[in-house]
Design a protein around this nucleic acid. Structure first.
Lengths: 237, 237
DNA sequence: CAGTGGTCTAGACCACAGT
DNA sequence: CTGTGGTCTAGACCACTGC
């Protein structure tokens, strides 16, 4: 928050969202902003680049920075639908049921997904998510015991993510997502209300730490009628 | 290509891909690179930031820039599977059949998708994509005649995208993708080899021009067993 | 032509990692 | 402590827009 360019960025986001800078109009020029904020032009440009990356403005050389009409985009921006976002969007409290939470020996499939060798163990956590009486999502999490020495049903019931970042201090650096459609397994049929659907949407999630080591593999299995993924992509030349 | 930081970026990408900089090792420090390339540190940093954004390196404060083991990621990076990428990946020449290419009056659904009012017309292009004898993908493109005055089967048979950018000089700025699963329509069943699949994966694509105006809406309808989407997301604090 | 954003420089100070 | 990357500055020149 003490970074000057971040402060400027956040201030300008507010002003755009409050309508002080209107859609399809131009922001003050970089030189004007440099004067207004009593800073250097490069710092202003850092803030403006952040605005552009996050879909607030469109920079046009020789003309200026135009405010984008964000009402066209009904979604935040950054593309990834986590369970929490989904829950927020559905607007109702979901019910999480923990079906399994134990330290296991990974089978071959898991070893492959987690790029494991030898006799490392992993935490397996299986949870279903229920919205208005319907069990819609099955989340299967696998965490390497090397990084996550302890896990419990209580933690799984709340948020694993918060536990990892806040309690264990693990810094998640990047993630790879893969979306495919599969035929439901017996487990899917047992733990979800599939209602005759013949397919299930599987989001495979590979989570990496700061040092680029893989430490978590998650499969989020969604009933197809309730699934929606949005991605907002910006060209960079 | 004459941008110094771009040249440096591309040179370093090559060196990483050729293994001159090995995975899990550190690049020369920014100061060393500044000397080597006889430039300023900010220029080096621009190149390094590009490398980081594209998943080549991991910058760690106080330590250096570590080369990421990209063999973990079997996919380019930026998350979007275009038809062409898919084709490249399948490794065989696909067959494109143009089923429809005409100027139409948009119905209510289309008007809504394209945020159209009044009596604008749109080009409708419907193509199927065939891989090893199986029609797998149905692409439905809708282009506003305001921006695309002419379209033909020949163009549709090749690449609409190349036509827009190279011939018409339209600059595509950003796109929103939405992925949902639907029940196949009669059109899907007629034009694709669905082989008893009960669902179809629909990728809705909203394409925007440089001035933030929406000009194209595309639905890419995939047979579920052949569909795969990969997204590589990087945290930015 | 003047004004815009895009690139580049040479220097400064800071926060952090490892010794 | 030194060396790393992160931020910031004041100035310069360029390419493009629109008059």
């Amino acid at each position: 928050m003490r970074n000057k360019y971040l402060v400027i960025y956040q201030e300008m986001v507010q002003q755009i969202e409050q309508g002080k800078f209107k859609a399809n109009q131009f922001l003050p020029s970089e030189n004007e902003l440099t004067d207004q904020y009593e800073t250097s032009r490069e710092t202003i440009r850092k803030a403006l680049n952040l605005l552009a990356q996050n879909g607030y403005i469109q920079k046009i050389r020789g003309k200026g920075s135009m405010v984008i009409d964000r009402s066209k985009f009904d979604f935040p921006v950054s593309g990834l639908v986590s369970f929490k976002e989904l829950a927020d969007k559905m607007g109702e409290r979901p019910v999480t049921t923990v079906h399994d939470c134990q330290l296991i020996k990974p089978d071959r499939y898991l070893k492959e997904q987690l790029k494991l060798r030898g006799k490392n163990q992993v935490w397996e956590v299986i949870r279903s998510r229920e919205f208005s009486g319907q069990r819609i999502i099955l989340d299967k999490d696998y965490l390497m015991d090397k990084y996550v020495p302890y896990m419990s049903e209580e933690i799984a019931k709340e948020s694993i993510y918060a536990y990892l970042e806040d309690q264990l201090g693990l810094v998640i650096s990047f993630a790879k997502k893969e979306i495919v459609v599969e035929v439901p397994t017996k487990e899917d049929r047992d733990l979800l209300d599939l209602e005759g659907f013949h397919n299930i949407v599987v989001i495979k999630n590979y989570v990496y730490l700061d040092d680029a080591s893989l430490f978590q593999y998650t499969e989020s299995r969604h009933r197809p009628d309730k699934f929606r993924f949005v991605d907002f992509a910006r060209r960079n030349h």
